[in-house]
Amino acid sequence: MSLLAVEDLRAGYGDTVILHGVDIEVEAGELAVIVGPNGAGKSTLIKAIFGVVSTQGGRVRFGGDDTTGASPERLVARGMAYVPQERNVFPTLTVAENLEMGAFTTRGPLAPLLDAQYALFPELERRRRQLVGEMSGGQRQMVALARALMTKPKLLLLDEPTAGLSPKVMAQVFGYIRAINQAGIGVLMVEQNARLALQIADRGYVLAAGRNRFSGTGADLLANRQMAEAFLGG
């Protein structure tokens, strides 16, 4: 059974419908990528799964339970975590405080959770007393990822984690995401850089105008000529 199964999901803002019935699946420990042109509804899909955008129809199942319309708090408690595209760190808090806020709802000792993130991102341990507002874009993204991992999620939702980063830093962030995935955590991410993202993906979905267009393994999608012409610029 899939870790996450989205069936015929319809969602939007008020009267505006953005998703007109989308189906996706993510297996446990898998790295899945959603690509597609601007306005395809990629971010809306992630937000609807996480309960920050209200669903208008369809179903979301997570870990075998129906979580359609569940609140972010409940989803976090069940093992989902979400990193928004923007404003995904607390700039006037230190690195350690950002991570601590990530575990706000978790009971029990903080130290092992912090150590786990510092093991994954040694640079954060060196900078743990630094204010995140003073850090570079790539470092902030590291903090944002580590913050989300503090709840020990089974599935990490990422909304355009490389937006606005230089190609070099982008490659670093993709490296972090692979490392997280290799630690056994399922990842579902929305990406603008379709080619790069599909290269590291187990599974890819192409969305256009709020509907599924193509799906398959990352390699299949990259090899699909029709898909490449339409969405990867030939």
Partner: peptide
């Protein structure tokens, strides 16, 4: 960041 604070529960 009120929005992120909510996401953190």
């Amino acid at each position: 960041q009120p929005h992120l604070a909510r996401i953190c529960g």
